[in-house]
C-alpha cells in the first residue's frame, strides 16, 4: 500500500514533498474513532498537523473510513480552507471583508500582487514557494481595517505604502533562521 501511495504522489506533485508520515494520519483517525461523520474535523486536524492534505493521505482515509474517495475529493475542494498543495513559507492573507473593502483593502491587495509579482487569478504562490498571497472574507477585526495577516500575525490599518516593508520583514526573518 505504501508503495502505491508514493508513486501516485510523485505524479501529482512537481516539487517532491517530504515523505509522508502516515502514522500521524492514523493517530488522528484514531482520535476521532475512525468515524466518518467526523470527516471534516479529521481533515482539519490533518491539515493542521501536515500543513496541507497530501493525496496519499486522503486515499488512506478513504480506505480506513470506507468512505468514497470521490466524496472526499468533493469535500476537500468544497471548503475553502483545505489545501491540496504544500503551503508557502510565508503566507500573506489580506482580509477583504466589507469593512476592510470600503477602507481600501483592494489597493493593498493589488500592491501585494505587484510587489510579489503574482497574478492570483493564475497562481497564489511565488514559483519558489517562498511567499503566498490569499484573501479571507472577514476575520472580525473590522475596527482596524484593512487587516493583513502575515504568517498568522495580525497587522491592522495597513497602508499601501507599508506593503513592501512588510514583505521584506517577513522574508528576511526566515532567511536568518535558515542560514
Amino acid at each position: 500500500m505504501a508503495a502505491s501511495d508514493a508513486s501516485s504522489a510523485s505524479t501529482v506533485e512537481e516539487i517532491t514533498p517530504p515523505p509522508l508520515d502516515m502514522n500521524e494520519v492514523d493517530r488522528i483517525l484514531e482520535q476521532h474513532h475512525s468515524d466518518s461523520t467526523e470527516l471534516i474535523a479529521i481533515l482539519l486536524d490533518i491539515q493542521d498537523a501536515l500543513g496541507y492534505l497530501p493525496i496519499p493521505a486522503l486515499r488512506h482515509i478513504s480506505e480506513q473510513l470506507e468512505f468514497p474517495i470521490n466524496e472526499i475529493y468533493g469535500i476537500v475542494t468544497f471548503y475553502k480552507h483545505f489545501k491540496l498543495t504544500p503551503p508557502p513559507k510565508h503566507q500573506f492573507t489580506v482580509c477583504t471583508g466589507t469593512a476592510c473593502h470600503v477602507r481600501g483593502a483592494v489597493q493593498v491587495f493589488r500592491e501585494f500582487e505587484r510587489q510579489l509579482n503574482l497574478d492570483t487569478t493564475i497562481c497564489n504562490t511565488t514559483p519558489d514557494m517562498e511567499c503566498g498571497l490569499e484573501t479571507v472574507n472577514c476575520i472580525g477585526a473590522c475596527a482596524l481595517g484593512p487587516v493583513v495577516i502575515v504568517d498568522g500575525e495580525f497587522k491592522g490599518q495597513v497602508k499601501q505604502t507599508r506593503v513592501s516593508s512588510m514583505i521584506k520583514k517577513a522574508t528576511r526573518s526566515s532567511g536568518g533562521d535558515t542560514e
Binding site: 472526499i72 475542494t77 468544497f78
Partner: peptide, 24 residues
C-alpha cells in the same frame, strides 16, 4: 461512483477524484 461534483460556486465541476483516471 466514479465521478462526482468537485469545487464550489464558480469552480464547481464534475470530475473524477484528483482529476485522475478513476479505478471505479
Amino acid at each position: 461512483t466514479a465521478i462526482d461534483f468537485a469545487g464550489r460556486g464558480p469552480d464547481r465541476r464534475i470530475t473524477t477524484p484528483f482529476d485522475e483516471a478513476s479505478a471505479l
